[in-house]
Design a binder for these strands. Structure first.
Lengths: 344, 344
DNA sequence: CCTAAAAATGACAGCGCTGTCAATTCGAAA
DNA sequence: TTTCGAATTGACAGCGCTGTCATTTTTAGG
């Protein structure tokens, strides 16, 4: 059986409470004492018992991750990122997949918090884009961090948000296409209900404008984040008299669909048509040719979210933000592959 | 704040201990008392505090899910399945992704069990296929359930295993191809280190034999569970003088790769070549045409695994198995889509 | 109706930790 | 050196539950 706080106390020759202070990083512990205790902790391979901490203390040491996302790769990346920081900080993770359209979602959330004694939650889209959710959490006074699409100084830029700069990344992608000489760039939209989709479209438009290219409405095709939407959208674009020479798909699945449609129509990629995706999901590597895309560092984003949340729980979010400058957003990074440049 | 066991006891007019007996399904509680307590539990929306239970009792109410699988969809399905049964039984789930090739995996597992006071674990491949892991768990006397590829009476058919009958499903798929009139069926293997891949190959071979078709070694191409492997393997098969008229890919990713290779070579699917996959992962629906495949009911499998594990933890696995006849295996079900039959 | 054994219920300690508050030690000014 | 407030440390209760064991109630048999 593993060591308890009493074992450590005995080993270090101090009281239980002092050990408690050390492992919780409370002030008012002399450096010498601190070191002595840390040594004993290490010597005994001590790890605090989460159950006991939650039971005794006012706050628990478990954070919740609430999600409803069909993209399994995204979810796994987020989980792993959060988990790594939980381990670092002796927190535990409670995963909570749920249905964002459920009518009694509020009650579900309340029950979760109440029964699981969760110390805080990480929210991803669509929950992070639902004002009702953050309102509820504020009312319940539960610390939370939301991952949300936005620009540095945009809406949602506060101490609860981790911003992902879809705008900027979409701008870069579009710029990449422009630099390759494309003047006629089609855009396949994701669902309008996703902030990310809107931001990506705006990035595209902004880059065109800055590149002095005409913004053609007919090159923008509404759709959703799916393979089939990509197939249909690309067909629409490619059957026009004035075909685009490049297609910017709002995510990799759409791009994979577009790629497929192009193949079917006998259009050579990338020679006759360049295609880019977004996300750098496994889909982008399982097409042929592989897709140029924007890499969203989900694991890093998740780690940041977890760290910020834990800091908030421990009441040191201000210091944390000052130290880490969290308010700047993440910009997915351009990854150039064969779908825009022929391998030479 | 939510109700405690004392609140329920007061409400029901019994002692705390009696409530404890009821929520733990212990014997020696009169029916009338039981009902009374249950009514109070419901009335107060009571849910036992997991921390307190773990702390007070000899066993915790948390089960671990240990995995190392690149297929995010598989992992998510498993998680959700396990989670649903955990909720049902007031257990919690601790997810533990880790590296099966890590040299100190044993120590990691020991630490996990020791520090997290886990009550039992669910293992998936590759851990379920590693004898060292089950040996360690047995030594530690930790209840576990492993999900593993196997046939009804095969190796591993015991009260710790949930069998997935890859053999049977592969047999059915092959039979489907034979019924369509194919006589020359190529097979693209997954990695040899996966039991599932071996079983699928044997199912294919067995079906050919029973269908009185010749078993041609050259139609079997070694490979691994990846898109690129599918592309390469299919190219190899399709460049032979005597091309197969159908390809059985060991999983959907390989099949997607094969599909792509066929397209590139100008081979019409399904008219000139039928392709089948395995798993019914999202990949099988994001190709064009969509893939015929075998649906592995991972969520159900996971639920069964969780139920069996919980039964084992509670010392009622024998009764549970008798009642549910768990020793029979799961057979993935054939799903026929456009890659083997042209939509009429 | 009584008795003894079985069945049902309850009292209470204690799991490992944190919060509260009291006790001790320290350091700087007098 | 002495003194006093500040810094540091410790004693102890109690979080919500389960395990143990004692007590009460029920049941069956005479």
């Amino acid at each position: 059986m593993s060591a308890t706080i009493n074992d450590v106390a005995k080993h270090a020759g101090v009281s239980m409470k002092t050990v408690s202070r050390v492992i919780n990083n409370e002030p008012a512990v002399r450096k010498a004492t601190y070191d002595k205790v840390q040594a004993s902790v290490k010597a005994l391979n001590y790890k605090p018992n989460n159950s006991a901490r939650s039971l005794a203390g006012t706050r628990s040491y478990t954070i919740g991750f609430i999600y409803d996302n069909p993209n399994a790769y995204y979810v796994i990346d987020m989980q792993n990122g959060i988990l790594s920081q939980c381990k670092e900080n002796n927190f535990e993770l409670l995963i909570h997949p749920c249905d964002h359209q459920s009518s009694n979602f509020d009650q579900e959330l309340i029950n979760l918090i109440d029964h699981s004694r969760i110390a805080g939650v990480v929210l991803t889209p669509p929950f992070s884009e639902m004002p009702s959710v953050s309102k509820l959490l504020k009312k319940l006074k539960l610390p939370y961090v939301q991952i949300i699409s936005g620009r540095d100084s945009g809406v949602g830029s506060n101490d609860s948000s981790i911003l992902v700069n879809d705008f900027q990344a979409a701008y870069s992608i579009t710029q990449h296409l422009i630099e390759l000489g494309h003047q006629n760039i089609g855009f396949l939209c994701g669902g309008e209900e996703h902030l990310s989709s809107i931001e990506r479209l705006e990035g595209y438009q902004s880059a065109l404008k800055d590149g002095n290219l005409k913004l053609r409405k007919r090159l923008i095709v509404p759709g959703e984040y799916s393979f089939n939407s990509g197939v249909e959208g690309a067909k629409k674009l490619l059957s026009k008299k004035e075909k685009p020479t490049a297609i910017f798909a709002s995510n990799d699945e759409i791009a994979a669909g577009a790629l497929f449609a192009a193949r079917l129509m006998g259009i050579a990629i990338p020679e006759e048509l360049a295609i880019v995706g977004f996300e750098n999901s496994p889909f982008s590597r399982q097409t042929w040719p592989k897709l140029t895309t924007a890499h969203q560092p989900n694991d890093i984003i998740a780690q940041q979210a977890a760290n910020l949340l834990i800091a908030k729980i421990q009441g040191r979010s201000k210091e944390y933000i000052e130290q880490h400058g969290l308010l700047k957003s993440f910009s997915p990074e351009l990854i150039i592959r064969e779908s825009t440049q022929s391998a030479v």
